[in-house]
């Protein structure tokens, strides 16, 4: 764990406004995301964060690398 469980939960929650607002912001530059695409993007982002957070930090675990 790179961050505490509590902090991880908050970071994931913070993805919600990012994704919701991203759609509006991208429309400004003529990139129109559908609802599904935004949802997939959000879940993908959460996945990346989870992997980052749960990946054992170097030196603290043998299984890294």
């Amino acid at each position: 764990m790179r961050i505490s469980k509590g902090a991880l939960l908050i970071v994931i929650a913070f993805i919600a406004p990012l994704i919701v607002e991203l759609r509006t912001v991208l429309a400004w530059v003529n990139v129109e995301l559908t609802l599904l695409e935004s949802a997939v993007l959000g879940i993908g982002l959460i996945g990346v964060i989870l992997v980052w957070a749960l990946w054992p930090q170097e030196g603290t675990s043998e299984s890294a690398g």
């Binding site: 961050i3 505490s4 469980k5 509590g6 902090a7 939960l9 908050i10």
Partner: peptide, 8 residues
């Protein structure tokens, strides 16, 4: 930011 008590 990471050191804050987010669990609370």
């Amino acid at each position: 930011l990471k050191a804050l008590p987010w669990r609370d």
